[in-house]
Amino acid sequence: MDAFLQHLVNGLVLGGTYALLGIGLTLIFGLMNLVNFAHGELYTLGAYATFAAVALGGWNFFVAVAAAIVVGAVAGALCERVLLAPLRDESIDTTMLVMIGLWIALQNAELLGWGGVAKSIPHPFPTAPLTLGPVGIAPLRVFVVLTALALIGLSWLLIQKTRLGTAMRATFQDRETAALMGVKIGRIHTATFAFGSALAAAAGALLGPIFLAYPSMGDLASLKAFSVVILGGLGNLAGATLGGVLLGIAEELGAGYVSSGYRDAVGFVIIILVLLFRPSGLFARSQRIG
């Protein structure tokens, strides 16, 4: 039972960051109709940006995490303007190929820039775990899960309460009508991609210090983000949040009770099963985008 609680807590920490990845991807997928295979690379970027700022620049850890998020947003906006805006009327296959190309290019650029050796990101938290009854949790993980929750809350506010969020929801529902109502679709796309990328970079900046930063870390992140999106339903923010937490917990339980070698199979199996039996996601009834 104690082990079960421990798995649950660890799963929650992972799940919070998976939710960040998933929310970003579900917005991009749902609103831009773009299968963003480069999503994980923004996650990698977030981790390396934090590493560069803290280990090389000597910045404060918290400032570095914030900076990594900004870097993610800027990189996302740039990608959208340069690569995706000219292809807006192309088919989903075409843009998908571009994103596969970007994924390979970015990953190998990172490999060339940083080398293949994994980097550990220094952080200011004590390593001794806090114990809450039978469960132990490292202070860094507490920080990660709280920050993730705060960012999820902020995303929700942005989507539900701001003018930009309203325009995004309108575009998701009906692009043509939104455009007729004066929504600048081009800008919404840029904003969405930048926002989703910022969330992915945030997930990388948060998980990087727990694990390590290495060039191919984004591959699994992308797949997990896709599992979360599929679990939660396309463009479904609440679904992505719940899906992220569920995936984190399922992985921890799978690794704990089945075999740690198959930890990453959990996401794959979820993709296959959900697509085959509930293609609109587990939480299809809940409101889409928010």
Binding site: G261, A265, F268, I271, I272, L275, P279
Partner: peptide
Amino acid sequence: KVRGAYFVLVTISFAGVISL
């Protein structure tokens, strides 16, 4: 049963599971 992007994801997952 699924097409387009979803087909891509199922095939990636299949290769991922087989590899594991």
